Amino acid sequence: MNTLLVEEKPDRVVVRLHRPEARNAIDAEMVGDLHAVCGLLERDPRPLLLTGGDGVFAAGADIGELLRRGREQALQGINSTVFERIRRLPMPTVAAVDGHALGGGAELAYACDIRLASTRARFGNPEPHLGIIAGAGACWRLRELVGEPLAKLVLLAGHTIEAPEALASRLVAALHEPGELETAAHRLIDRMTEVSPAALRLTKLVLDAPPSAHPVADHLAQAVLFEDSDKEARMRKFLDRKRKDTT
């Protein structure tokens, strides 16, 4: 891949946005590469760690490409389609955001399940300054993540969410110094890999289900897990350890 650096591990996949000459601006080639990563993770589900470069996550979509796009390309949802595919990946996704996450870069981070950020992270959606909307998810995902007042401040008034406000608004789960960010992200994924992969996958599925799907979705997921041999092994191990602790 020309726009991503991909490291496959048995228990996770690490993807680094890699267009340093363009501050990791998201172009059509990167969209294609992200689709390829999604295909990999749909075939072989593992947690995803998505990050950028030193001091920049992604500075937005490629403006040169956006300038050449017209109505038909807008209706295709080129960026929003891959971001939604990332959102629907079967296992958790973690974005480690260092520096600028603007425009499409911010929308890519919004699509991940959990965001960690460095102390110099900045989130913003300045698309109206370019005569367009934040059309790849920000107009509805950001409201879900931080609430309507802050979302409108960002989308209508060009407000930039600096790292402390990102933490206070729960847009990000934690802040770390830039040199410690990726280590912290790996520690978070380490905790995910300690649990049952099937339970992790089904928990994400139930969490993302629409309200009308509950409690049926919960019951069906639990029914699948109750018949899983991993559930029996983990529960027996827990009970054996508890018996040893009491003797």
Rank of each mutant, 00 (worst) to 15 (best):
A101I: 03
R122I: 06
Y110R: 03
L89W: 05
F83T: 00
C112A: 10
I63P: 08
G55E: 04
E42V: 10
V6Q: 02
G53M: 02
T160F: 14
P90T: 07
T119N: 09
G60H: 03
D240S: 13
Q73K: 12
A163D: 14
Q222E: 13
M192C: 09
A209D: 05
D27T: 07
D54P: 02
T247I: 11
L108F: 05
G131E: 00
A22E: 14
R115K: 15
S80D: 09
T119S: 10
H214K: 07
A117L: 06
P149W: 04
L34W: 05
P178L: 10
L150Y: 10
R187F: 08
A136G: 01
A221Q: 09
H159D: 10
K244A: 12
L50S: 02
L171Q: 03
R12S: 11
V172S: 01
A199L: 11
H214I: 07
L145R: 15
V6P: 00
R69H: 11
D44Q: 14
A36N: 05
I86D: 02
R141N: 04
G99M: 02
D33Y: 05
T119Q: 07
A185G: 10
S229D: 12
S169E: 06
Y110H: 05
G147V: 09
T51R: 00
V31Q: 00
A151W: 03
R43I: 05
A223V: 02
